[in-house]
Design a protein around this nucleic acid. Structure first.
Lengths: 145, 145
DNA sequence: TATTGTTATACTCTATAACTATA
DNA sequence: TATAGTTATAGAGTATAACAATA
């Protein structure tokens, strides 16, 4: 039980959030660097990574949390690198389905490998902490999606 | 993230990391939106937020995880908005100390308020989970930085 | 009329390399 | 020589608004 100056001190949740926020800010650089090691700007790497199946521009822009007009440029550059193709949809001729080329698929595999490698801050925790974290994260943001 | 053969990594830490990574990617947009509500691009908001005391360009660029030449532009724009000043250092005439103006200090307070407000995914956890999260985060990335 | 995707525009962030003024 | 900061340059991501093709 916290007592005394509890009013001045933040709640546990608030402190957890501040710690996480600081980590997230530093993580942006971490992820950018990992992506650059693969030879891709991080947004392009993220977009390519999400192409698990042929995906309309529209849907991918939502998944990337960006405007469709922004994604046009991102996909232009991925296409110029030979990593994705815009294929016409059979059902709706307005829609273009984004599909990785064989080279894109290979790069996508490498991106997933990098992404799945746990961050040092997580990897260095005790096994008990890692299990607790997994369980809490499942409750916090594991359900939906 | 149900993905068939992409889930072959089975340690708790790896799953915790994947969950966290997904959250972080969505968080970028969350933070950008919060900053834009305050009328500032998110990098400028972050830089201003960090100005707890007069700070050399050099040091702030490290804290922002960006190149000094990048920070020059960011600070230019903060200065143009009237939020920061470049003041000469008394000890080293090469150094410029970044200091918020009164308007900048007011904006900084508002940014901190927004940043400190826990994200819904954290706030909706049980008190027990929030405390556990705080403790683990302290161990993971609370000390160093 | 509504939706999908693009273009035009303007701004911001990003790093590298070369430069200046100090130290 | 070395460091703090800027400038020049080139590239990339960002949203808004207007547009064409299609539904």
């Amino acid at each position: 039980m916290q007592r005394g100056d509890e009013r001045r001190v933040t709640t546990a949740g608030a402190e957890a959030w501040r710690l996480l926020f600081g980590f997230v800010m530093s993580l942006e650089g971490y992820w950018e660097e990992r992506a650059r090691e693969l030879g891709l700007p991080h947004v392009q790497a993220y977009a390519l990574m999400l192409l698990e199946e042929p995906t309309p521009m529209n849907r991918l822009s939502t998944m990337c949390h960006c405007d469709p007009s922004t994604l046009t440029g991102v996909v232009d550059r991925l296409e110029a690198r030979g990593y994705v193709e815009r294929r016409p949809s059979a059902v709706d001729r307005r829609v273009k389905l984004l599909t990785p080329t064989p080279e894109g698929e290979e790069m996508r595999r490498r991106i997933l490998q990098v992404v799945h490698e746990p961050h040092p801050a997580i990897a260095s925790l005790s096994g008990e902490d890692q299990r607790a974290l997994r369980d809490i994260f499942r409750r916090a943001f594991g359900e939906r999606d």
